[in-house]
Design a protein around this nucleic acid. Structure first.
Lengths: 107, 107
DNA sequence: GGGATCGATAACCCGGTGGCTATTGATTGA
DNA sequence: TCAATCAATAGCCACCGGGTTATCGATCCC
């Protein structure tokens, strides 16, 4: 019963992890070393975060010699956009119902 | 350094809590009792979740006699929409840079 | 081949958080 | 007035998750 929204929200809820993802969005492909250098946490911590991001489909890894390059997969954000749109839709639909109700009451 | 995104993502990352918020979006104002009835957790748990949602600005409470009515505050979601838009913007801007580079190389 | 670097994994610790039961405070209504 | 209901709070517990250090495997370069 664990859906795409769960994974996305949970993955992005950690500030350190979200910062890593943001950096990959801003500056494109980065090595683990580069990401570690400005993350404020240890290299194993960064690797763990990257693992979580990868499992959520938010990043890809590309191996090149002994270093690994990570890049953001922006398409993976769409369930999140969909979710907010859906919430807005529900809200709007209820608003329309209210409008209809008022119209009927007006007659 | 804890910004609006932190609060939103963290608040919505819990499935139970997000389900409560979704229900308030779908069906509008609800009492704690009604929300508890279909949440699968105890009433105190629901109250705690509502407290977190309220602190995040995602819900309002309205007291009426001995029962409390909660409703979704959809506007509070905008930082989330902004964030995804920003990520897309970064991505797009890097893509444009690549395009420009290719154009320059083409000449 | 051998030392150095890079990144992943293992093993562990600790704090936060979501759950529970019990209780309290307030309001309702018989 | 008093029992019952509603929601919030208190107090507790168990688990998860993010951090660390240590280590390993692999690759690079001398």
């Amino acid at each position: 019963m664990t859906n795409a929204h769960d994974v996305l929200f949970r993955t992005l809820s950690d500030p350190t992890r979200r910062a890593i993802f943001e950096r990959l969005c801003r500056q494109g492909e980065q090595t683990v070393g580069a990401l570690t250098a400005q993350s404020g946490v240890s290299q194993p911590a960064v690797s763990k975060h990257l693992g979580v991001l990868r499992q959520a489909g938010l990043v890809r890894d590309r191996h090149e010699g002994r270093q690994t390059h990570y890049s953001a997969q922006l398409a993976a954000l769409s369930p999140l956009t969909d979710w907010t749109n859906q919430m807005n839709a529900f809200w709007q639909s209820r608003f329309d119902d209210l409008e209809n109700l008022l119209k009927r009451m007006d007659q």
